[in-house]
Every structure is written in C-alpha cells, then in structure tokens.
Simulated scan of single mutants.
Amino acid sequence: MFNRKNKDVNNLANQEENTNFLLGALAWHGSVTPRVLLSVLITGLYTLGLAWIDIHYYKLPGFAVTPFEYIGAVLGLVLVFRTNAGHDRWWEARKLWGAIVNQSRNLLVMSWNYGADDKQWCNDMTKWIVAFSFAAKESLRLQKEFDDLKAILNDSEIIELRNAPHSPVFVSGKIAALLQQARLNSTIDGFVFLEIEKQRAALIDSIGGCERILKTPMPLVYAIKARRFILIYLLLLPLSLIDEVGLMAVPIAILVAYPLFSLDRIGIELQNPFATKNLSHLPLQSICVGIKNIAATFNINKMAR
C-alpha cells in the first residue's frame, strides 16, 4: 500500500514534457482533462437540451454572436491572469526549495571542513541537516511520516520529531544546539560559528516562505468572480449558437468550455505546489532523497580520508 501511494504521488508530480508533439498533446496522466471532463460533458448536455427544446418544443430567444466574441476575449485575459498567478506561486516555491538544497549543502561542507574535529559531532550535524528537508516536506504536506529517516534517526528521535508542534523548527533547534555545544567547547571559532549559523537561519527563512505560500490562498473574491463569469458565459453562449448553427452548437459549446474549464483548473492546481493531490506538485520526495544521498556520499568520502 505504501509503495502504491508513492507511485500515485510520483505520477502527479511535475515531470518533463514529452518531446513528441502528438504524445504530449494526447497525454492523459498529468493533464487536467480528467478533472474537467465532467464539467465539459455537462456543458454539452445543457446545450443539447436547449437545442432539443428549441427545435421540437419552443423557440428560444437568440443572441448575436458578436458580443460573445468580445466577452470571450476578456474572459481569456481573466483566466490567463489566474493561471499566471498560480504559476508565480509554484515557481517561487521551487526557488525556495532550491535555496533549501543549497543551504543544506553549505551546512554539510562547513560542518565537515570547518566544524569541530569530532566525527560524532559531524555525524550528528549531518543527520539533522538531512532531517530538516524531510521535516519541511512533511510539514508543508500536513503530514508526519518519517519512515525515510529511520536509517539515520533512532526511534526516540523520530518520536520526538513526530510530537514536535513544528518539525522544521524542532530540527533547526537540534542543529543550533550542536553549534552552541561546539562554540562553548571552543572546537569552532566565532567566525565559523556565525557563518554556519547564517545558513541555519536561512533554512528557517526558506520554510517560512513556503508556509506563506501554503497558508495564503488566492483572494477568494477574485476566484468567485472568475468562475461566475465562466458560468454566465457558458449559460448564455448556447442561445447564440443554437440560433446560428442548430445542433452543431453542442460540439462548439464543448470546444469552448474545455479550454475555459482547463485554464481555471490549472490555476487551482498550481496554487498549492506542495499538495500531493494537485497536478504538477513539486517533487519534494526526490529533492529530499537527493539531499540525503549527497550527505551519504560526502560522509563516505570524508571517512575514507
């Protein structure tokens, strides 16, 4: 079950696009199509119902097509703004996680080269530096699963981590305590302490930036208005199409509804780049495992010297 869950999460994580145009255009996994398909079909059935009534029972009032062309252009701009706002949040989150990776690397290099001449101290620093990324990942996903850390943390440490009100701050506190220990023992000088402390503080700044994205959704007033415009547009558009093309209004309405619903959904999917249920969420698991592998390789190389 655990492996199946991870597989599903990876399928929804952001991946490179297929270089083959046709395969990319027809891709199902990672596309918003499954999530908007019901809304598109309902639009088609609604248009079909109106066309059936217009042809067999009662002549519905028609509208000129021209106003809908202008309204559609304005609606497209509204949706593009929504999508761009979501992408800005997604990209900012990725930059913050890039900073976490770089700060973790800096801490590893500084600890092993400028830190205390004590293998145990270096090993403790390494395990908590690695633990920070996993703690940050779980905190942003509102979870507390730390099975990936069982190889480097003992049971009591994992229990402490799970019970901590804010796991990234708990891990940062462990790193700070190790730095203070080395400073009081005079195993690192004041300059080295300050430089390593800057990197530790930067980790907190990065997770704080991620939490700002997580806890500040798009303004509700904008989301409501954008969707209300889509609803009104798709409710009135068939009345114009039926008068012009009859039953052909059904496929035309579907073709219009599909990109509108898709753009709206893309904006939603990108708002929270950490949630595993969202499409193209950041591959945080891969990033954390990358930090863990770097630490392991670095540790082995230092031990071999």
Rank of each mutant, 00 (worst) to 15 (best):
M1V: 13
D8V: 10
N11I: 09
A13C: 12
N20G: 06
T33A: 14
V36I: 15
L38P: 02
S39E: 13
L41H: 04
G49L: 07
G49M: 03
I55L: 10
H56A: 11
Y58E: 06
L60G: 02
F68K: 05
V74M: 14
V80P: 04
W90D: 02
W91Y: 14
W91P: 04
A93Q: 02
W112Q: 04
Y114M: 13
G115P: 02
G115M: 03
G115Q: 01
F134R: 01
K137F: 01
K144P: 03
F146R: 00
I175R: 02
A176E: 12
R183H: 14
G190P: 04
L194M: 09
L194Q: 15
I196Y: 01
K198H: 08
L203H: 02
G208R: 05
P217W: 02
L220I: 08
V221L: 10
I224M: 10
L235W: 07
L239Y: 12
D243S: 15
G246D: 05
L247H: 08
A249E: 05
A249T: 08
A257C: 08
L263K: 09
F274H: 00
T276C: 08
N278T: 06
L282E: 04
P283L: 04
L284A: 03
N293V: 12
M303F: 11
A304L: 12
R305N: 11
